[in-house]
Design a protein around this nucleic acid. Structure first.
Lengths: 183, 183
DNA sequence: TGGCGCTGCGGCATAACGTCGCACCCGCCT
DNA sequence: AGGCGGGTGCGACGTTATGCCGCAGCGCCA
């Protein structure tokens, strides 16, 4: 028997929507909204399937991936975030996540990613180049990643004013030109 | 002894820039511009380090990743593309690439990704990343080039207002970052 | 306990941007 | 010829974003 799907997302509303959507499909699911709660659930009964949000009240959900896999090797993790960036996507997959999806996304895509381990190799290549704003966002995320989330250090590396970086980070990422949920 | 870095990119100019940049650092490198050439090199002497572009004259460089790893398990692959997307990034990492970077990118970032087997972040930070303005400028030039100098078309592709593009083009290029050959 | 660095945020002057409009040129079609 | 569509350059104006101050809170460490 499979354990319930663990939904980790600090957005109460979205979290609820997900859990109920799973419930409607007779899939047991449990939602938590913080790293602490998540850890508690893990130590209690390591989940087999997890939907993980990256922005958990400032903390990065990324850190949870190794813990999940340590608790259960065959744990299937799908990362789901409203602030999708290539940098964090690469990191998440490297850490062992199965899939990385950008919100908004349909429940079915999440389920598919959770169930389906087969990646289609013949991934289509994007037709359009990134917009300048998107490129900037990706670049910032990458450097921020390299600096372990240190905003001041990132601002210095980017030769950008710290205040400006803060403001940029506070905003939503620019729309991604090509496909998102695909795969 | 390490084999030369294999650069797979159908953009002759960028390919040349990369190979020369490596040469300037006394790093042996060999550039090829097609999947066929790449396969030839692989069967001849499986490279240890590879810089792989995704858009190879229509074909996806993604397919080369399994082949490279089959030829040499410890092959280090860095995917580099001008048409980055989260979907292909996820795919590339799943297939075994070490890093996924969006053009334009600094040579140092490529080298750092190639060398850094361990997530030792310190090394990566050492090299200064491009400033956002410089990154933007490089990107604009690239797309402008692709559109044969057509400003209106470039503005559309970049989802930027034509007036804004004009103003940006009218200004001098942003302060020079660390990057070598102007690509 | 004070110093140091990171963080978040308010405020303000200035620069950049989005948007509209205009004139001009060029190639094409009828 | 005239009309039409597309590209280019540029002025003007209101709206945003940015650079740069400053302040307070927090964790860290000698």
């Amino acid at each position: 028997m499979r354990t319930a799907i663990l939904v980790v997302d600090d957005d109460d509303i979205f979290n609820g929507v997900l859990v109920r959507a799973f419930a409607r499909r007779d899939i047991p699911a449990r939602g938590v909204t913080s790293l602490e709660e998540a850890r508690a659930v893990i130590s209690e009964a390591a989940p087999e399937r997890v939907v993980l949000d990256l922005n958990l009240a400032g903390a990065s959900g990324l850190t949870l991936i190794p813990e999940l896999l340590a608790a259960r090797q065959d744990c299937r993790i799908v990362v789901l975030t409203g602030y999708a960036s290539i940098a964090t996507a690469v990191e998440a997959i490297k850490l062992g996540a199965m899939q990385y999806l950008a919100k908004p996304v349909e429940i079915d895509a999440i389920l598919a990613a959770l169930e389906d381990a087969t990646p289609e190799i013949e991934g289509a290549i994007a037709a359009e180049p990134m917009s300048v704003s998107r490129l900037e966002w990706e670049h910032i995320q990458r450097i921020l990643q390299a600096n372990e989330g240190n905003i001041s250090a990132t601002a210095r590396a980017l030769q950008m004013h710290r205040r400006t970086l803060q403001r940029k980070l506070g905003k939503r990422p620019p729309p991604f030109p090509p496909l998102a949920g695909g795969s």
